[in-house]
Design a protein around this nucleic acid. Structure first.
Length: 415
RNA sequence: CGGGGUGUCGUAUAGUGGUAGUACGCUUGCUUUGGGAGCAUGUAGUCCCAGUUCGAUUCUGGGCACCCCGACCA
């Protein structure tokens, strides 16, 4: 992608109506646009990051046996009435709308009920189980107050997987496996060191659930870190004698500490709550009907992007981990190097690298360097007049600002 | 949802009951080009509706939007 063709622009000033670091930096550098409070558009650079994160999650879900689907945003009131969740007293942050004929509809804030209803068409025998459908989709939640930039929006991108198992034992095996799958995802996203598997209440479904909490001052939750090695924590709300006893945990008062954190994912055992409400049954080996045992597994993709920004930036701008960077390389052509830079750009693209190419010839060096640091792609290749005459280029590491001078020939091998 | 605050070119801001200014951006031209370069040139704005007034961007009322604190956050 050539910067002269990229429609998004960087700014010198941060927007006055954002206080969160993630929104300030992402708007300043042209990754997102604020449409309304808590509602953001993803511009070309931002969408590339979203897609990188989505693909890492998608691969892990597929490896764990997931099958990707895409459900509807518009939802049928009748299905939700069966589980008693349509009532505003049950769910108060739901956007609802109407058909022309006045029929009420919901805008998807989660998808247990419609999916269970759908699965009645596909689950009838024990041979059909277990199954793990998931989707990556925009969710809508009518938050009373949007805040924290893209980390708490009224409209956000989420991966939600649902497990359908024959019984609790089969469910538990998968549930335990998902804890590891989730940590693997956060490791790949560069958040592994700061992310804790966190014991939390299970809502109305089970006594406990697990959240995945990434330590950051930008977070809205507080966790107590129980075991640094095992990356285990307990949510402040559930930090008590009973929880410790239930999990057989002994407190080490010397290492115990509390931290602010961002909830980047959660997994719940739903049990029979929805299969009973909507009558989702299968026939077992003995020919008898049984209810399906369920779980659900969420990750906020847009929130993850915000969390990654909160943890990876400096006074010059964004510093993307390689795995989620919108491009592999930021190629900068300084003055009078257009021909050389064009050749190198073509060669890099031919070799399969994704490259953001600053091909502006009417822009001063300082602007290009500052924009590159602001945009935050991990590797910068700088083509300068003096160096290129010696057949050399510079490779700069965005994070360390360290510059290496190498020959053009060795460039492709080094990368 | 309770409390507080703010709305001025694309962005960040100043100011005023009587011609709305600055910086950045953008246009055009020239000079520049290794850390947001210089000179010149042009461009563009008072959130919406109503009221008071000879005259409202300014005052009053209503609306809408945005921000902050709290509550809420299957």
């Amino acid at each position: 992608m050539r910067i002269t063709k990229l429609f998004s622009k960087t700014r010198k000033d941060s927007p006055k109506d954002e206080t969160s670091k993630n929104a300030q930096l992402l708007i300043k550098s042209g990754y997102i646009h604020k449409e309304l409070a808590g509602v953001y558009t993803y511009l070309p650079l931002g969408l590339r990051v979203i897609n990188k994160i989505s693909n890492i999650i998608r691969e892990e879900m597929d490896n764990a046996g997931g099958q990707e689907i895409l459900m509807t945003v518009l939802q049928d009131k009748n299905i939700w009435e069966k589980s008693k969740r349509w009532d505003d007293n049950a769910v108060d942050d739901w956007f609802k709308t109407r058909l022309k004929n006045n029929t009420e509809l919901g805008l998807g804030f989660t998808h247990e009920e419609p999916l269970v209803n759908l699965m009645k068409n596909h689950i009838s025998s024990y041979k059909d189980l277990p199954i793990y459908p998931y989707q990556i989709q925009t969710k809508f939640r009518n938050e009373l107050r949007a805040k924290s930039g893209i980390m708490r929006g009224r409209e956000f991108l989420m991966k939600d997987m649902y497990s359908f198992s024959k019984n609790k034992e089969e469910h538990n095996l998968f549930y335990e496996k998902m804890k590891e799958v989730y940590m693997s995802i956060f490791n790949q996203l560069g958040l592994g060191d700061k992310t804790y598997t966190t014991i939390s209440s299970g809502g109305s479904f089970s006594k406990y659930s697990y959240e995945f909490q990434t330590v950051s001052d930008a977070g809205e939750d507080i966790i107590y870190i129980i075991d640094q090695e095992k990356k285990l924590a307990i949510n402040e709300d559930d930090f008590n004698e009973e929880t410790l006893k239930d999990f057989g945990l002994n407190l080490n008062k010397e290492t115990l500490r509390s931290e602010k954190s961002i909830e980047v994912g959660d997994i719940y055992s739903l049990g029979y709550r929805y299969s009973k409400a909507l009558n989702l049954k299968y026939t077992n080996e003995k020919g008898l009907d049984e209810f399906v045992y369920m779980g659900c597994y969420g990750i906020g993709i847009s929130r993850l992007m915000g969390a990654i920004v909160e943890l990876n930036s400096d006074d010059k701008g964004l510093v993307w981990p390689r795995e989620v960077s919108p491009f592999d390389i930021h190629l900068i052509s300084l003055s009078k190097t257009e021909d050389y830079a064009n050749k190198i750009y073509d060669e890099l693209v031919k070799r399969g690298f994704s490259v953001l190419f600053d091909d502006r010839q009417d822009t001063t060096t300082g602007v290009k360097f500052n924009d590159a640091d602001l945009i935050g792609i991990p590797k910068q290749i700088i083509i300068g007049e003096k160096r290129i005459k010696n057949n050399e280029v510079e490779i700069k590491d965005r994070k360390t600002q360290e510059i290496k001078i190498i020959s053009v020939d060795s460039l492709y091998d080094l990368l």
